[in-house]
Design a protein around this nucleic acid. Sequence first.
DNA 1: GGCCAGGTATGGT
DNA 2: ACCATACATGGC
Length: 275
Amino acid sequence: MLYEVDKDCILVQNRSEFNIEHILECGQVFCYGKEDDKYLVFPQDKYAEVIEYKDGYKLLTKDTDYFIDFFDLNTSYSKIKEELAKQEIMKKPIEFGYGIRILKQDLFETLISFIISANNNIKRIKLILNNLRKNLSKDGKSFPTYEELLSCNEEFFEKMGAGYRAGYLYKVLRQVTREDLSAFASLPTKELRQKLISLSGVGPKVADCVMLFGYNRFDVFPVDTWIQKMYNMFFSPLDNREKISQNLIEQFGSLSGYAQQYLFYYQRSYLGKLD
DNA sequence: GGCCAGGTATGGT
DNA sequence: ACCATACATGGC
């Protein structure tokens, strides 16, 4: 897509390719907030403010290169959407979430975030993650480092509000390092999935989310409660989420990850309540 | 007060 | 390989 870089500013002028509300609120990411009419984005130790400007946005940040990659600005979505829209079920979701982009998020932050997301709601997921930032990182704003998280006991994670996921966090930090996660990137999707599922607190759904939002594998289809509801409205109902995921991957192939995100956002916005 | 939230672990057949 | 259940917490 088209964008310009000035000093400490990225200029994006096409909302059909970039809509900050759709990108951040579509459920793929938790490190953001809204203040008046601007969005704040704070992955890892980075920071950007996104404000409306003309037909698009100004992204104000000292880390322009980081956010060009984070927002995957060099990928064009017009062909992806065109291809997906050939399937009737995708037409309205694409129209609705027109400016969605799949982010390229940090593996470690994504893993921790989606372990916390299990059987939880987005508001509380963000609260727990913000508690971790506030209490563990040096500046109280950055996502904690691996070492900072490794130094915590289970009780601490409970105090942060993690509930019964506290034990998962404590364990998973002793199962993989940042370096391990990076090394996994060379594995084919099937083996990567098995590797992730072997980790504490990681089942099929969390593994699929980490693969999509961290490893940017698009031949996966995370199935949560919303996708399951959607599936059972349009197809012959199944209660086996693995089977649902397989069927949807069969239908959408290498564009599964994109399809999932449009469908999830549409489903959650219409049937559910956005906080 | 029961149900639900971007489910997973565990123990039973 | 499939199923049932427990699991913290907070909003509605």
